[in-house]
Computed example of a mutant assay.
Amino acid sequence: MRQRVVVGVSGSPGSLAALHRATAEARERNADLYAVLAWQLPGGGLGGRATYGTAALREYREAAVEELRTILDGAFAVRRPGVALSGLAVRGEPGAVLVEAAESDDALLVVGAGSRGRWLPALRPSVARYCLAHAACPVLAVPPNPLEAELAAVLSNNWNMPPGR
């Protein structure tokens, strides 16, 4: 069995940095690359109170698959990955989905470890922390690009500027 590199993708800048790092790791290891998008139903996780019919579930799954295609097409628009790439859209909590996708000890799990803002940590646990604590394989947590913080600061300052400046 070929070694595999599993990476979580969501379309965020941190997940795109992780995707590109995972691609480089897969090339270096001559491994297959699995890009995994975890999706959930609106209104909550697997145990949400809303009841969805089969047609609605199919629609949400298809939307997740399309989102994954869009993310991968955008990430590799300039340069193809150069490794065997599989995309997986899986319903569930992101951390648990990624740990399960990388369940073999010959895998490498790559996750973005970017900042989630001032309020978000209290609302949603870190996927990277979950993976580091629960994965049976090595986990590579990719830090955010320093340019992200600079761009956020510039955008924040421009947002707070008075009109006409």
Rank of each mutant, 00 (worst) to 15 (best):
R4S: 08
V5P: 02
V5I: 13
V5E: 06
V6S: 01
V6P: 00
V9Y: 02
G11A: 08
G14R: 07
G14V: 10
L16V: 13
L19C: 07
H20S: 11
A24P: 07
E25F: 14
A26Y: 05
D32M: 11
V36F: 11
V36M: 10
L37E: 08
A38C: 07
W39P: 03
Q40N: 08
Q40Y: 03
P42D: 10
G45L: 14
L46F: 13
L46P: 09
R49K: 12
A50K: 12
Y52V: 10
L57Y: 00
E59G: 10
E62F: 05
A63F: 04
A64G: 05
V65E: 14
V65R: 12
E66W: 06
R69H: 14
D73S: 06
G74T: 08
F76W: 12
F76D: 05
V78A: 12
V78S: 14
R79Y: 12
P81I: 04
G82H: 14
V83T: 15
L85F: 11
S86I: 10
G87K: 03
G87W: 01
L88I: 11
L88Y: 11
A89S: 07
V90C: 07
R91K: 14
P94W: 02
A102V: 06
S104W: 13
D105L: 09
D106Y: 08
D106R: 15
L108V: 05
V111L: 03
R118P: 02
R118V: 14
W119N: 04
P121K: 01
A122M: 06
A122D: 02
L123H: 06
R124Q: 11
P125S: 10
P125N: 06
R129M: 04
Y130L: 00
C131N: 00
A136S: 11
C137Q: 05
C137D: 09
P138Q: 03
L140N: 04
L140R: 07
L140C: 09
P144Q: 12
L147M: 15
E148Q: 15
L151Q: 15
V154D: 11
L155Y: 06
N157G: 10
N158C: 09
W159E: 11
P163K: 05
